[in-house]
């Protein structure tokens, strides 16, 4: 490899650092396929950008910004929208109205969106965080939206609802001082230490899905957190309650086991700490719209 090529690869790393500093988490370093330290760091930076994009979207959602809502038909034509006043100047609605979605999305994000739509057609409860990069004015300006896509059925037609937040173009710092000054007064997650403790609770639950959930009082004692902070903080950080999170994660695991093992449904239910088979069956049907018995029979 020539010096010129090496310099070019290093310049991609510099550019990534600058893009992250500007709050652009869509940028990805072009990989060379060469196994060396520069490639290793390029991959690490790409993964860091993905993780930061996800983390900062969750943080933004916590700050309760009203989301942007876009509803598209199956031909990617915008049919309805809601844009909060604060975003109207930054988000050019005319571009959205005059073009179909596939004309203004960056190719990499369009592929991702199509993949999500495919997943939704197989499982309409599928949820996944999307980062949509838009490009306008023949590529002269870019902006991005982080959020979720949902499938809606109305009068035998499919519609896609995209709900998300405009990604900031100014750096969002993560240090403790800033996080306090930027938060609304009623925000319970005022210290990074509390956020970390709640993350520890989240990980603890994931590691103990085969056991029944300890009470909130027990969890708050174990992780040295005030009960109210734990309940509200968990909801803010993960957009669900501790109880629902524990339930849904166990149901997701049960689905994988039902699909891929001959384990009896009763064994699956008891191995994931469901109180009884009827309790498991009811919860499964509520989440997936089909009983575990029927789901397994349908796969045979």
């Amino acid at each position: 490899m020539t010096d010129h090529q090496q310099q070019r690869r290093i310049s991609f790393l510099r550019k990534m650092i600058l893009e992250l500093a500007k709050g652009n988490f869509q940028y990805r370093i072009e990989l060379s396929g060469i196994k060396d330290t520069i490639e290793d760091f390029s991959l690490l930076m790409n993964m860091l950008a993905e993780e930061l994009g996800l983390l900062l979207t969750v943080r933004s959602m916590k700050l309760s910004q009203p989301p942007i809502i876009l509803i598209y038909d199956q031909y990617f034509t915008l049919i309805s929208y809601s844009i909060p006043p604060a975003d109207r100047e930054k988000f050019n609605i005319h571009i959205l109205l005059e073009n179909t979605l596939d004309e203004i999305l960056l190719k990499s994000t369009l592929d991702k969106l199509k993949q999500s739509i495919l997943e939704l057609s197989e499982d309409m409860h599928h949820t996944e965080l999307l980062q949509l990069g838009f490009t306008t004015n023949s590529g002269l300006s870019h902006w991005s939206l982080s959020g979720m896509i949902y499938l809606l059925h109305h009068k035998k037609k499919d519609y896609y609802l995209i709900q998300g937040l405009l990604q900031s173009t100014t750096p969002i710092t993560l240090n403790e001082k800033d996080s306090i000054s930027n938060y609304p007064k009623n925000n319970v997650l005022q210290l990074q230490a509390d956020i970390q403790k709640i993350r520890d609770v989240h990980q603890y639950i994931l590691n103990h899905l085969h056991e029944s959930l300890p009470s909130i009082i027990q969890l708050s004692r174990q992780f040295n957190l005030n009960e109210n902070k734990l309940k509200k903080g968990f909801k803010q950080l993960y957009q669900t309650t501790i109880f629902k999170f524990h339930l849904h994660k166990r149901l997701e695991q049960s689905l994988v086991l039902i699909k891929n093992t001959p384990m009896s449904l009763k064994t699956i239910a008891s191995s994931l700490a469901f109180k009884s088979f009827p309790h498991f069956s009811r919860a499964f049907k509520l989440k997936y719209g089909i009983s575990p018995n029927k789901f397994r029979k349908g796969r045979k």
């Binding site: 994988v256 086991l257 699909k259 891929n260 093992t261 384990m263």
Partner: peptide, 16 residues
Amino acid sequence: KAAKKIVDDRISLQKE
């Protein structure tokens, strides 16, 4: 999609 297929294949080989 690849990750799901990978996990499905592994678990089906392991039975239970």
